[in-house]
Design a protein around this nucleic acid. Structure first.
Lengths: 242, 242
DNA sequence: GCATATTTGTCCGTATGTATA
DNA sequence: CTATACATACGGACAAATATG
């Protein structure tokens, strides 16, 4: 049994400022496992074994699992358990449609561009370029997501921010089955610069148009390199990868 | 207030087709309580009392409460418990901004209007008019929400549907503190007809424009008649300072 | 198709920590 | 400051559903 979970980080009451419950912290580590590719889509999360590995009670674990189900990172089948969600190609297409609608509309509705918003946008672009230089592709992906969050944040709606954050988080599941992620990210990183430049010169309609075609091409690229492992039609009961 | 819960409806295994867990059913009844105004924003949901009233265990109840917290109908304060969420005026404004962005953009992105989609739209309008005739204002509000869901559904994105459904559900919390809801709903019901007519004649840009001004005026109307009661029994000291 | 073993769903007792009177 | 109430978390128990042979 893989014992790579770090339960000390869970039980340690690290900071009194953290208002997080134990379940939230368990959800955090599980989320990180999924993003890092330790838990592949389709994998089952057996309550007994995960609870052993994480050192929390089953009640707490179930609470954490439920959080991730609501985030759409896990699916829940009554009586069978929870599994890492597997995106279909249709799911991915749908997610991109949502992004085109929400992100572009948010851009076009921006009233005033606050300096802080522009700074966050530029910072995300620069983070992405730095990550490319270091060939750290996970960090490139993270910076890309931050870029799109910064774009939407220009609209100044906190509710819209959380909304798009949830949608973007689902894309992590798509990356798990993309084989040439480095090619993908390097190919589209330049677009971020173009869009940021259009935003800087206050040409939001151009920025929205650039974003729209960018998302269309990205969708095609993702779908073209998406190879979901069907695992022979049967889901493996193995809890932790291997 | 909590004593009037009906636990029979919970334990009854109503339909074998329902893949719902007990927690889901508990969440359903609590959600209905909130929508019906039995549980007002700011009210505390004591685990002990609610569990007695509903006849379920703490574990199950906590699971149900967590569901509603994720739905933003309840708020959770660590160590204090869960409360029915209280919308501030800023919250309402923000929600309307999200609706203007998402609903209008969804309309403008519609490619083909499917007959079923148009039918759902018309049905929601007719349901609303019938409910007005019966002076059943709760039903008018429900029909209004279905109308907007049907509008967004024209875009053909399932993910966008669930997204806007969650946003619209939050408005139930606003209705709780609006006193002249009948005036509000009758005033804006005619707009539904106009928008549906524009959609029927394939003039989606006009429909989006009508929708935009409609949402702006509705926001003003809601804010004007929004009188949040600071619930007497339970104050929210909300110690967020450090 | 049946019998068995495993896992989940649910409930309960209890201990500890935290907030409030 | 103490006391009380309550939320958080743990662990064990059992029935029901599911998976396995």
């Amino acid at each position: 049994m893989v014992e790579s979970f770090n339960d000390e980080s869970l039980r340690a009451e690290s900071s009194q400022l953290a208002p997080n419950s134990t379940a939230s912290r368990v959800a955090d580590t599980l989320r990180a496992r999924i993003i890092d590719g330790d838990l592949l889509p389709g994998a089952k999360l057996s309550q007994e074994r995960v609870q052993d590995a994480l050192g929390v009670s089953r009640s707490t674990l179930r609470e954490a699992l439920q959080l991730l189900v609501r985030e759409r990172l896990l699916t829940h089948e009554l009586g069978r358990g929870v599994f890492v969600r597997q995106l279909t190609m249709h799911d991915i297409s749908d997610l991109y449609r949502v992004r085109r609608i929400v992100e572009c509309a948010a851009l076009q509705r921006v009233e005033v561009i606050k300096p802080a918003g522009l700074r966050a946008l530029v910072a995300a672009v620069e983070d992405g370029e730095a990550a490319v230089a270091e060939r750290n592709w996970d960090q490139v992906a993270a910076a890309s997501i931050r870029f799109h969050e910064a774009l939407v944040a220009l609209a100044g709606s906190g509710r819209l921010d959380t909304l798009i954050t949830e949608v973007l988080a689902e894309f992590r599941l798509a990356y798990a089955f993309m084989r040439d992620t480095q090619a993908f990210h390097t190919r589209f990183l330049g677009r971020h610069t173009d869009i940021a430049e259009a935003v800087r010169s206050d040409d939001l309609d151009s920025a929205a148009a650039l974003l729209d075609t960018y998302l269309q091409e990205a969708e095609r690229a993702v779908l073209a390199s998406y190879r979901p492992q069907v695992s022979g039609g049967r889901q493996r009961p193995s809890v932790l990868r291997q």
